[in-house]
């Protein structure tokens, strides 16, 4: 808060304390992983778990050496799946949402309602047949098998439609039309710039959704060179049951994998529109 009423200068104790307890609870595992990533594998089980040590760069070196640097490959794969997938998804959602919001045409509500029902389809109903279908065309265990199913997002289209309806005035579209601009040019040069905050929001929501979607790469990919970082670390963790030395790689890898996404959020937080997600958008 920047302006506190002069009559009540001090913050209320109980609400502040409850929120801080919540914040500590949410930071606790992160604080632990930061401390644990500084420990040598041999002391992981013996020293007090929040006490840091000096082995972070050794651990990072071990992680980078593991499997010929495959960890960094997983990170690049993740950036590709989530970054490219979310960018394509935001573009597609923007165009579709704008169309559904700004045109009146036969079949509009049918198309919209079928897309909206897609929000409710559980991922599992899709994962098995997607695997079988992609296997038929020989695309399983390729980058495409994770990228292609991630592009169309019913939720993204739904959000883009709300945002386009609120942010793009009909009169502006009509004026561009009178000037003789083509329909696609109107979208690209008039509507799209007005929709940027909504598109950033869709991009971030999709980025997190793809990053978080474990089932799809788990089912589609067999070659660990194509794994996203979540799947790669999961396989390391699984092998750690017999090789506990791998646990310190998992810990360091988990910490490093969290940094880019948190950075993207902090960098974009002033541009993204949370009110869009709560349905309370006022552009």
């Amino acid at each position: 808060m920047t302006s506190t009423p002069a009559r009540r200068p001090r913050p209320a104790f109980l609400p502040t304390a409850i929120l801080l307890i919540g914040a500590v609870y949410c930071l606790l595992p992160v604080a632990w992983v930061v401390a644990a990533s500084t420990k040598a594998g041999s002391t992981l089980f013996t020293s007090f778990t929040f006490a840091p040590s000096g082995s972070f760069f050794d651990n990072m070196g071990d992680l980078s050496d593991y499997g010929g640097g495959i960890y960094w490959r997983w990170m690049i794969n993740t950036a590709l799946y989530a970054g490219l997938g979310a960018a394509l998804s935001a573009g597609l959602s923007g165009l579709s949402g704008y169309t559904l919001a700004k045109y009146r045409f036969t079949g509009r509500s049918v198309i919209f309602n079928v897309l909206l029902a897609g929000v409710l389809v559980p991922g599992i109903v899709l994962a098995i047949p997607q695997y079988l279908m992609l296997a038929k065309v020989g695309l399983t265990n390729t980058y495409w098998s994770v990228l292609l199913p991630s592009i169309v997002s019913p939720y993204g289209i739904y959000l883009a439609r709300i945002y386009a309806a609120a942010a793009v005035p009909d009169t502006v579209v009509e004026a561009a039309r009178v000037d003789g601009a083509s329909e696609f040019r109107i979208f690209r040069t008039v509507a799209l710039p007005m929709m940027v905050p909504g598109m950033i929001t869709v991009f971030l929501v999709q980025f997190v959704a793809i990053w978080n979607n474990f089932l799809l790469p788990f089912i589609m990919l067999a070659d660990d060179k194509k794994f996203p970082v979540t799947l790669g670390l999961y396989t390391l963790l699984n092998r750690g049951a017999t090789e506990p030395a791998l646990y310190s790689l998992v810990i360091t890898g988990a910490l490093l994998s969290m940094i880019p996404l948190v950075a993207v959020f902090l960098a974009l937080q002033r541009y993204w529109r949370v009110d869009l997600l709560s349905g309370a958008v006022k552009a």
Partner: peptide
């Protein structure tokens, strides 16, 4: 701080 875990995938959160 309370929003931050949204940026952590469920698999990573479960590991921590």
């Amino acid at each position: 701080s309370i929003f931050m875990p949204y940026a952590v995938p469920a698999v990573i959160a479960s590991m921590l």
